[in-house]
Simulated scan of single mutants.
Amino acid sequence: MNSIGYYDGSHMFFGMLFWVLVIIAIALLFRWSNNQSQNNGEDQLSAFEIAKIRYAKGEITEEEFERIKTSLFSKKEEE
């Protein structure tokens, strides 16, 4: 037995494995974060598109749809 004890090198292996996993986790988190920021504008529907879908499903009446459409397009003209 040497002065280190029962050290067989596995501690160094598991230590390196831990840091490799940490680095991989950080890289995956960074990649996921970038994908989320790029997809924010693409996956969201506009208010008018949502109103059209709700009207097509029968969730709102024609009068409600026209009121929403008028409200949305009058706000765009003001900007």
Rank of each mutant, 00 (worst) to 15 (best):
H11A: 09
A47T: 13
A25K: 11
E79R: 14
N40T: 14
F18R: 10
I4N: 09
T61Q: 08
Y6I: 11
E49H: 09
N35R: 03
F30Q: 01
A25F: 15
N35V: 02
F14M: 08
I50W: 08
A47K: 09
Q44C: 01
S71I: 01
A56P: 07
L29N: 13
G58W: 00
S46H: 02
L29H: 09
N35T: 02
I68C: 00
F73M: 05
S3M: 09
F65M: 03
F13G: 03
E77F: 06
W19Y: 14
G58E: 00
Q38D: 09
N40W: 09
F14Q: 05
K52M: 04
S74E: 15
K69V: 00
N40L: 11
F13D: 06
G58Y: 00
F18L: 12
S74M: 12
S33V: 10
H11M: 13
L21T: 03
Q36V: 08
I60P: 13
Y6E: 08
F73P: 05
S46D: 10
F65W: 04
K76P: 04
F14G: 03
N40G: 08
G5R: 06
L72W: 05
E62N: 14
L21S: 04
E77S: 12
K75D: 06
E49T: 11
N35H: 01
N40P: 05
G9P: 05
K69R: 00
F14V: 09
T70H: 00
Q44S: 02
T61W: 03
F13M: 08
I23P: 02
W32L: 15
I50M: 15
E42P: 05
A56I: 03
R54W: 10
M1G: 09
Q44F: 00
R31P: 00
L21N: 05
I24Q: 00
E49A: 15
D8P: 01
N39M: 10
L17A: 07
I23Y: 02
I50G: 07
A47E: 12
